[in-house]
Amino acid sequence: MILDKLIFTLRKSNFWFFITKLCLFFLLVFILDFSIGNTLRYFYFKQESGLQYQATYAIEKTKEDLLIFGSSRACNHYMPTIFEEKLGLSSYNVGRYGSPVLYHLAVLKGVLKRYTPKIIILDLNLQEFEKIDDSYDVLSSLLPYYKTHPEMRSIILMRGKYERLKLLSNIYPFNSELLTIAIGNTEINKRRHDDVKGFIALRDNWKFPIKNYSFPQNYALDSKKINAYKTFINACKKQKIKLLIVCSPYLSKNRFKDSSIEIGKQIAKKENISFLDYSNYIPLINPNLYHDNPHLNVEGARMFSNLVADEVLKDR
């Protein structure tokens, strides 16, 4: 009776009737968003294998002495088992496909909050500091950690001006991840072994002639990425972590100089950090060691990991 009267009064005023209904609608959306978002969160962190699990492991669970940071080239080029054998230090590859230096810095912040590794290897790509909008989209893989990792927030918020607003939603951090989370929680996924301590092996050989590796020469530089690189170095120095920056090899006929690598070298030199540039390393230019132009196969990765491990040994 009272409800009917209230509805009747509200109906008489178009505006208040609209506002009431709108509030009820938003309440409904909020309830759905809260319950679905938190369910997704639960299952996201319950995964025990796959890329998302690797990210969670890197940020929240690593306790290894040696960590390897970088993009797909880090994942495919550095075998932690070889570093363990040669250096006698527990190792893990925290690289992630397609990730820029901003991502590595965020992961490093997550790691340093918990413990201090002894050695860190950062793999740098050609064009690492190029200004590309996509680099910020890729940071979406960090969205699930926004709530629980305040140290990573400033980097996550670089995705866009309205990111803070979007993150009011509980579902948004898991946008487009429903299927991956579902598969990540199945038994089939647990039986898959894509990685060995974060290293992902590429098994086939490059079957085509070696070409000139083409990449733009004069590209715009992203100061945020350069700053992230500097911050990465400084954070390691501050914690007295031995940092080694490496540009791993490319399969290419041409010898090249890349602005990002040159800047990377200059900054490293200034900060007194070792920089190993294998981008033009002739002994490794062999199609049998590559999966494609920028990626070594498992044989190449073995050789390269030995090479880098020897360099670390020399430096100790």
Partner: peptide, 19 residues
């Protein structure tokens, strides 16, 4: 009616491409 439209919002949040 409202659950249907609220579900549409949820579908956008779950599967929409925001970039």
């Amino acid at each position: 009616r409202n659950i249907s439209y609220a579900s549409l919002v949820i579908i956008i949040l779950l599967f929409g491409v925001f970039d």
